[in-house]
């Protein structure tokens, strides 16, 4: 046993170099001022104070709103999809799960560009609309386009944990519910859904985390003026060059996500019952 403990060392070194040190740097940046070089730094909380300005709070609220809507749609489509997949034979199931994950093999940027060409003013959707004699519509650079992009991008992260939970359900529990007089609808809400909750909680956490922190999708499908918190952080680091403020926003986002995860964990029956 003792020998194998050594094997963990490269990973430890890697984690410290690539995760712990950068995190500490972000914390330092967020509570200091004096440029990006860390040469003459001064402690300050002004970075956090700045975030309280209405313009930034608005971006923050908008991000949460878009995030929640994205999670809701992901949950709705993802649950139905996972539930339907579970009804097939085992071989068909693994094939369908493969289909769900295939888009993840392709770069997000490419997938987002694909949505641009579908939704743009003379894109596929509008071409079909005009062919049908309907007025073309503007999809690009709207909330709609951003949400469509996010839902399609993050759906696998909802489907897979829910599918895993559903497929693990002991079928005799379903039979027991029928045996005790529950019809299909009652059985679903009183038994199946409850047993799939761990997957639902994981799926919601993952998709929420992804959708509040993304910046590629809102940038491409929302346009240059479209600001979500991910874009704000990106701008602070890349365009404005204010690493201190960028770090402070990152810290705030991290705390919000942590709070959200803690709340979700409470709802997970497996984790909550520690008393």
């Amino acid at each position: 046993m003792k020998h194998y403990v050594k094997l963990v060392r490269p990973y430890l070194i890697w984690s410290v170099l690539m995760i712990v040190i950068p995190l500490i740097l972000i914390v330092i940046y967020s509570v200091t001022t004096g440029g990006n070089t860390l040469v003459n730094i001064q402690f300050t909380l002004s970075n956090f104070k700045k975030f309280a300005e209405p313009i930034y709070l608005q971006v923050f609220m908008k991000s949460l709103q878009i995030g929640v809507i994205t999670v809701l749609f992901c949950f709705l489509f993802g649950y139905i999809l996972a539930y339907k997949i579970c009804k097939f034979s085992e071989r068909a199931q693994s094939f369908m799960i493969l289909l769900v994950t295939i888009p993840m093999w392709i770069n997000t940027l490419l997938r987002t560009y694909a949505w641009m060409s579908i939704l743009s003013d003379n894109g596929i959707v509008n071409t079909i609309l005009t062919k049908l004699g309907l007025d073309p519509m503007t999809f690009m650079y709207t909330d709609f386009a951003v949400i469509v992009g996010m839902v399609s991008d993050f759906l696998p992260f909802m489907v897979i944990p829910i599918y895993t939970s559903l497929s693990k359900i002991d079928h005799s529990l379903i039979e027991a519910a029928h045996d005790l007089g529950a019809n299909n609808v009652q059985t679903f809400f009183k038994v199946t859904f409850k047993l799939s909750l761990p997957g639902v909680v994981n799926g919601i956490m993952m998709t929420f985390l992804l959708s509040v922190s993304t910046f590629v999708i809102p940038k491409l499908l929302g346009g240059g003026q479209y600001m979500l918190i991910g874009n704000l952080i990106e701008t602070q680091f890349i365009s404005v060059g204010n690493w201190n403020f960028g770090s402070a926003i990152s810290m705030i986002l991290a705390v919000v996500i942590l709070i959200a995860i803690t709340i979700m964990r409470r709802m997970d029956p497996d984790d909550a019952e520690e008393d």
Binding site: E175, A176, D179
Partner: peptide, 20 residues
């Protein structure tokens, strides 16, 4: 007649109790 409408009840091999 579907199972949920029958006047019989079952004790399952591995009990099948609802864990929640």
């Amino acid at each position: 007649v579907p199972a949920y409408k029958r006047e019989v009840n079952t004790v399952f091999q591995k009990y099948a109790l609802f864990p929640f």
